[in-house]
Amino acid sequence: MIQMQQPKGIPAAYFNEREHQICVMARLIEDGKTYWVAGGGTPMASILLAKKLYAPNAVYVTEDGVLAPEPALPLDPIMTMVSSRASYRALQWGTMNSVGFHAQIGLMDYGILNTLQVDPYGNVNSTLLGDYKSGEFRRFGGPGGADSIASLCWRTILMTDHEKRKFVPRVDFISSPGFLDGTEGARERAGLPKDTGPYLVLTPWALFDYEERYLRLIGISPFVTMEQVLGEMNFRPKIAPQLITLEPPTEEELTILRTEIDPRGQVTITGDIGRWIQKREDGTYGPVEAEPEGRPNPNLPRSW
């Protein structure tokens, strides 16, 4: 069974789906473990929030070899790695090779990734949409560090949006390996380390784990229905007999997220943040008609 912290604080009245996803992820962070994360974005925001509230002894490293930093937030756009603020008060400054080798000998417990597409076996595409061989495709940036994270960490967690085009029966291109064709031992046959692989997928709407190396729905957010969750997937996942409710953000979580971790809104305001959700008088949750005003949009690139 998945270990998840009880949310601290009182349930928030207003939040957006991106904030909800980050808060749920923060409660899933395991204390005292190592996380290899892409610099910036939702994975880094989640672990920083977790360190403040739920898992003070969780440690993260980034691709440029920063080990266990206490970053000076906020970071300038793109300056999530090889920068003085992102690397501040680390325990070691290494290199891409050094952190890669640390992961290769088994020091990294978890990796958290974003993705363009994911399939039922947890394979990740960040390279292109379309057909590689025919040349009919739209090219993206490539795996970056994700391939190594997905190969070498003991457990891999994906954070992605809940959209039909993202959950596909077969990814257009395996940039980073999940359970590959889903057969037992497929990763080992491809030369990957034993006992590694996909662990969870978290969207703003739902949480999945894997049963027999196949995606399984285990939790749903209170502002969506099962039909909505399954309707935005291009394949049917397995479904756990009992589903967890992904508790909405608390005021305490949002305060830390909005004021300390992401005060410029680079992750939680700019770009695709999903819908704004409201707690109704009867205690249920649903999307609000108009977005609440207040925080300015800094018009910065989405990634930190």
């Binding site: 891409m96 090779n97 490539g142 391939d147 190594s148 190969s151 380390p193």
Partner: peptide, 26 residues
């Protein structure tokens, strides 16, 4: 991938023809 590229350069810096790695397969 990024790490595979730096692993390749590492091999070049060691004066050896190739390097076994535990990622990239599959």
């Amino acid at each position: 991938s990024n790490v595979v590229m730096t692993n390749r350069i590492k091999a070049g810096a060691m004066g050896i023809p190739f390097l076994p790695v535990r990622s990239f397969g599959g």
